[in-house]
Design a protein around this nucleic acid. Structure first.
Length: 137
DNA sequence: GCCAACGTTGGC
DNA sequence: GCCAACGTTGGC
């Protein structure tokens, strides 16, 4: 199966892209939504992930990659949900804001825009390319 | 701070 | 198994 692209949201007050760079890697846990959990389970090692700041910033700020595929989320007592591990790849040259993404026709079908509350969502190759282009290459 | 979207829970 | 009530997320 070919590598896929994803987008994850994080409130920078809680965990920012700078925190990920500082830590070098982190366990992406705490997801308590079935649709998001399915996406986590589909992630493969090496898949690249857009890191989006919600609440504050409202922009994609960096690229991360999956370094460990889904495993049981130790913070979930029910045992239903999973976590992955991600590591930073590089910050975007220029953050791509939500407003810019909404205004970009190439992104009109993006899952993240259509389903605002979803914390983990797939990104198509075309969407991925468009966002990196908007970020300055 | 408010509100819309939407997932989850619980009564029936 | 349906559906109303409730809780959470996240944009504005």
């Amino acid at each position: 199966m070919a590598a896929s692209h994803w987008l994850v949201k994080s409130e920078p007050n809680t965990y920012s892209y700078a925190d990920l760079e500082r830590d070098g890697r982190t366990v992406w846990d705490g997801v308590r939504n079935n649709a998001a959990a399915l996406h986590l389970k589909s992630m493969q090692e090496g898949d690249e992930v857009l890191f989006y700041h919600s609440q504050e910033g409202l922009a994609v700020v960096g690229v991360a990659k999956v370094i460990r595929t889904a495993f049981p989320d130790a913070s979930d007592p029910s045992g239903r949900f999973v976590a992955v591990e991600i590591a930073p790849v590089r910050p975007l040259k220029r953050p791509v804001t939500l407003a810019e993404m909404k205004a970009e026709p190439a992104l009109s079908g993006m899952v993240m825009l259509r389903q605002g509350r979803l914390s983990v969502s797939p990104v198509s190759d075309a969407e991925w390319a468009a966002i990196l282009k908007m970020a300055g290459g």
